[in-house]
């Protein structure tokens, strides 16, 4: 039992190592290109789940946080050409601030109202970006990648960065889940009033969850400009992020950090395959159907199904 954190650290390092090995293999560039998207969804789904799965606040505004991270990066690239680690950190911090803001919304808004407010937030933010010419306005903006990545091609490099970010996100989620914070969040998810009356500082925990979730969503969005090299509001604020962010944890299972990872890897990979082999609309259709099927038939997700099978 004592070795638990050490073992987790080893597993994390192993994943990063494996990522670097994969990057060094120089297989078909498309693998890295698609792999980046899947990993980006691992971060997004994990981040969403900290608020949605652990605390029970359904965020429909994922695109707002993701795009805010991306546009913070665009702004910094435009103004200072800051290096990637700075972009990631700054994108995360700005989104974390937005997260703190919606955290205060939870004071007055619960359940459906909170979700609708986050959706509204996403649209308002998108309108502001559309009307902000410095970062490209509605037409969008080309971003030039810095010359000479530390190793490999730039896409390979970004892929490796995403591996690292995924490990960080999952580690944070796992830590929260197993600590007193996670138990407090679970209590307030079950019954906020009772949790407060049992000594749980519900507001502080909610603010913590929205801030951390916002930070990780911003982190996922920050490398996006360099990945696509052309940023425009419709792609950065894509509703697909909102759907995937909640579909992936729902499919995997929301009560454990493993759930979003399983959901993101399965659904993310399936989408990448579907985009190539069928059409991008078809792949979204599949997401919708799978999501509805899961919430109706297997509300505990794949993890719940596995548990039920083991239990019998």
């Amino acid at each position: 039992m004592m070795a638990r954190p050490a073992r987790a650290l080893l597993v994390g390092l192993a994943v990063v190592g494996a990522g670097i090995v994969v990057a060094a293999l120089r297989v078909n560039q498309y693998v890295y290109f698609a792999g980046y998207v899947v990993l980006q969804y691992v971060v997004i789904a994990t981040a969403w789940n900290i608020l949605g799965g652990y605390a029970g606040y359904v965020n429909f505004g994922t695109p707002a946080f993701f795009a805010l991270g991306a546009y913070t990066a665009v702004f910094l690239i435009q103004s200072t050409r800051a290096p990637l680690p700075v972009l990631i950190l700054a994108g995360g911090l700005v989104s974390a601030l937005l997260g703190l803001g919606i955290g205060y919304l939870t004071l007055r808004l619960r359940g459906v109202f909170f979700s609708i407010a986050t959706l509204a937030l996403s649209i308002v933010l998108q309108t502001m970006i559309i009307n902000w010419e410095y970062v490209g306005g509605s037409r969008g903006l080309s971003v030039i990648r810095p010359s000479g990545p530390p190793f490999g091609s730039y896409v390979t490099f970004l892929f490796t960065v995403m591996v690292l970010l995924s490990v960080v996100a999952v580690t944070v989620a796992r830590f929260i889940e197993r600590s007193w914070i996670g138990r407090g969040l679970a209590a307030l998810r079950d019954n906020e009033e009772a949790a407060e009356c049992m000594g749980v500082p519900t507001l502080r925990l909610k603010l913590f969850a929205t801030t951390v979730s916002g930070f990780l969503l911003g982190v996922a969005g920050a490398p996006f400009p360099y990945y696509v090299t052309f940023v425009e509001p419709n792609s950065a604020f894509n509703l697909d992020y909102a759907v995937n962010a909640l579909a992936m944890p729902m499919i995997g299972g929301t009560t454990s950090w493993v759930g979003p990872v399983i959901g993101a890897v399965l659904l993310g990979t399936a989408q990448q395959l579907a985009t190539v082999t069928i059409s991008s609309e078809m792949n979204l259709f599949i997401v919708g159907v799978v999501l509805v099927a899961f919430v109706v038939l297997a509300p505990e997700g794949i993890l719940g199904l596995v548990r039920r099978l083991r239990g019998r």
Binding site: R183, A186, N191, E193, M198, G199, V200
Partner: peptide, 18 residues
């Protein structure tokens, strides 16, 4: 207003801890 996702024992864990 019990914590529905927890067992009876875990329900007591919250006030004990917090």
């Amino acid at each position: 207003k019990p914590f529905t996702s927890m067992t009876v024992r875990e329900n007591l864990g919250i006030p004990l801890e917090y």
